[in-house]
Design a protein around this nucleic acid. Structure first.
Length: 393
DNA sequence: TGGGGTTAT
DNA sequence: ATAACCC
């Protein structure tokens, strides 16, 4: 049974873990009772074959490849004051993912730490893995940097057709049952309030009540997931839909600081976008304000990127940073009243709405319908900008 | 709790 | 624009 997006079991060990399984089986007539109490539907023929490739302690592995001297030592990857992941040597000594650096050092004084705040190499390695898998089937869906789902249905069908009947009957397949964990933080809290704390609880809970509590969409989906049924397709991820860079900090409270941080974030982003080749048409600024509680909440403002800037994006010789920082600072002042004291703990810049080319609409009907592209309409340009960006000039 | 990502509303 | 989810 393949349980996608539902919090699979913790890695069993080894450098790379891959699980294959049938997915989206229809409910079976006989549903044998597992020793643990889970009801596991047995199925007919596999409707699909999907491989889930999950790389263990991915950042740590990338670091050990970059610097082989780290192999064999307890290694943690640090972002700010957190050990976001660590290798198995470190885990043996009690270091956990997302552990405080202090606690980790206390548990394991020999712990070697490397800074992993710059994701560039991780991102590059991550796409190398995805591209490798895409050689088997183009249907590869990414989840984070270290997980891929590959739909091998076609490949398996073709291979099975090639087999002789005696080879076929010699084939054995073994299944896999996941841990008894429930999914998503918010939903888990709501489920717990209903007395649902295990997958079995969810399997046996009233569908009607669940639908009333969570809405029909979430309720039906997670209850099917509790039986290991997931008919969602493997959606090819393709190139990313957005590029973002963020930085968190204890305190940022002046416009100058904000501008400097934004400049840094934007510079890295422009490099990435330049390599990608496509052009972003939307820019977004995200902030997190200091607050004792509600640390999760973020606010954002976005606007279209003016077309004259988009056109300069790939070229590299023009200064696009200055006008783009100007735009970001306007977005910032739209969110934060800079005449009042403020305290930010995070800034993030996101470039999205990526389009393949500079999409010259010349010769298309859009050319005559898009005010900002038309040479004659100064006023059209203004109204276009005002309408879309919600910014004062 | 980092520094990313996605989709749904 | 936000909220939820994933890693």
């Amino acid at each position: 049974m393949e349980q996608r997006r539902a919090g699979p079991a913790e890695e069993a060990g080894g450098d790379e873990a891959a699980e294959a399984g049938e997915a989206g089986c229809s409910p079976a007539a006989a549903a044998p009772e597992e020793p643990g109490g889970l009801v596991v539907p047995e199925g007919g023929p596999p409707a699909r074959v999907i491989v889930h490739v999950d790389l263990d302690c991915f950042y740590a592995q990338v670091e050990m490849i970059s610097n082989p001297e780290l192999k064999g030592k307890p290694l943690g990857v640090q972002q700010k004051y957190l050990v976001v992941t660590c290798n198995y040597e470190a885990r043996k000594l009690g270091v956990k993912k997302l552990m405080n650096v202090r606690d980790a050092k206390e548990k394991c004084p020999q712990l070697v730490l490397v800074n992993g705040e710059d994701l560039t190499r991780y991102r590059e390695m991550s796409y190398k893995v995805t591209e490798l898998l895409e050689e088997f089937s183009p249907v590869v869906e990414r989840l984070g940097f270290d997980e891929n789902f590959v739909d091998l249905t076609e490949m398996v069908e073709k291979r099975l057709q090639q087999l002789q009947s005696d080879e076929l009957s010699a084939l054995t397949v073994s299944g896999h049952v996941y841990n008894n964990q429930c999914i998503g933080y918010k939903t888990a809290k709501r489920l717990e309030a209903l007395g649902i704390s295990s997958v079995y609880d969810l399997q046996t809970f009233s569908s009607k009540i669940l639908e009333k509590e969570l809405g029909i969409s979430v309720a039906q989906r997670i209850q099917k997931l509790s039986f290991g049924e997931d008919n969602s397709p493997v959606t090819p991820s393709g190139p990313p839909q957005s590029f973002s860079e963020e930085d968190s900090f204890k305190k940022c409270s002046s416009e100058v600081e904000v501008k400097n941080k934004i400049e840094e974030l934007l510079a890295s982003l422009l490099n990435r976008v330049c390599q990608d080749g496509r052009k972003p048409h939307t820019i977004r600024l995200i902030i997190r304000r200091y607050s004792s509680e509600n640390h999760c909440s973020r606010e954002s403002r976005q606007c279209p990127i003016p077309s004259h800037i988009i056109q300069k994006l790939g070229t590299g010789n023009c200064d696009v940073i200055t006008p783009m920082v100007d735009i970001l600072m306007k977005l910032f002042r739209n969110m934060v009243n800079v005449k009042m004291p403020f305290h930010l703990t995070l800034l993030s810049v996101c470039l999205c709405n990526l389009k393949a080319l500079n999409t010259s609409k010349k010769g298309t009907i859009d050319y005559y319908l898009t005010p900002s592209l038309s040479t004659t309409s100064r006023s059209g340009k203004r109204s276009f900008k005002m309408k879309d960006s919600h910014m004062e000039d």
